[in-house]
Nucleic acid binder design. Structure first.
Lengths: 195, 195
DNA sequence: CTGCTTCCTTACCAAATGGTAAGTACTTAT
DNA sequence: ATAAGTACTTACCATTTGGTAAGGAAGCAG
């Protein structure tokens, strides 16, 4: 596996997990190095600064988000959307790192930031959605608002799972996740072809 | 106004804003002191550590969240819910500090954290919801999952507004907010009395 | 006037943090 | 055999960080 042979990539994966978990300011180079079992300078050999390392983590995130839309192979736009959203829901609930990173990016982005790593992903989602019959003639803004309502709920729940486990225990959290998953799938179908 | 006479409270309000904006690790005591126009030690006079200051910020947040449910005066549980959610949507979109704080708490809470400042708020929401006819005989888990879907979308959009303004400009962001607000209100009514 | 409380100041400090400099072991190409 | 590149290491450093110590001005009670 590449983890064993490509140190640069390995460090990026460790950093992705930690930044997702604790945010940019909550992570130190020393902690990352410790995670990887190397010295700080092993990281600085590949990434000149902490900011640049974080930047690469976000660039890879953007790439993953976009490619998960592109890689879907389904005959109709409607099926593409449903397939994507269901996969996204399952993925976010079982491995919430990307959802956490996305939300951290949104939290840390102020109005002065003109370029966001999330923009291509959002644009792509809007484009795919507007290929469906239901959303064909709807304004970009209205489509994006609808997408936000759907994705927002999923992302929000996904990042809450550790907190829910802490508050209610594992079994209750599992039950919540099951209910949420079902309700989300209904919402997805509703989004794609209702009314 | 109390801002002029009660320095402790004034510091708490400044801290609330900054912690919402940048997170616990993204804020330094020196920056807060600078915001307030005093020295670091002015803050440490009232709050022994940064952690305790943050703890008080979160305690006040929890108090605000709960009281916003309690303070609503409406004849039926259904109306209470609709009133609450619509006020919450408007509030979150116009002043997203609390939404940001809530999401930061969720992000920073791991499964080991048994006590969350958000728990009383969630419990209260579940209780009010289960007073309605629609949710009367539904399990707590299913109710909470439904609430999450509704609130999650609103919170997620609320914290995104600066990023959306940065990506698309003020006018598009306003248009998005209007569409989102409308769609949310429909979802609220749907949640309370549909099917 | 004195003593007490409130709210703040300057001076200081140890630890942590991001980052630089210089050197080293191992592999690969010539 | 040697030069060059890869992937590190230890040693070090300036700055920032949360926090301590000590003291002082303003208001107010006796």
């Amino acid at each position: 596996m590449a983890n064993q042979t490509d140190p640069r990539r390995r460090y990026l994966e460790i950093a992705t997990h930690r930044f997702a978990e604790r945010g940019f300011h909550g992570v130190t180079l020393a902690a990352l190095a410790d995670d990887a079992g190397v010295s700080k300078q092993a990281l600085l050999y590949f990434f000149p600064t902490k900011e640049r390392l974080y930047g690469e983590v976000l660039a890879r995130l953007a790439e993953r988000l976009s490619s998960k839309i592109d890689d879907i192979d389904a005959p109709t736009p409607e099926q593409r959307l449903v397939t994507y959203f269901e996969a996204h829901t399952n993925g976010a609930l079982s491995r919430p790192d990307d959802a956490r990173l996305v939300i951290r990016v949104l939290l840390d982005t102020d109005a002065a930031t003109k370029v966001s790593p999330l923009k291509p992903y959002l644009e792509k989602l809007v484009a795919v959605t507007r290929e469906t019959n239901r959303w064909k003639d709807v304004s970009r803004e209205e489509v994006l608002a609808g997408l936000y309502k759907l994705i927002g709920a999923i992302q929000y729940f996904a990042i809450s799972t550790p907190a829910l486990r802490g508050m209610y225990g594992t079994t209750t959290k599992e039950s919540l996740a099951t209910h949420f998953s079902e309700q989300s799938k209904a919402a997805i179908r509703d989004f794609v072809d209702c009314s």
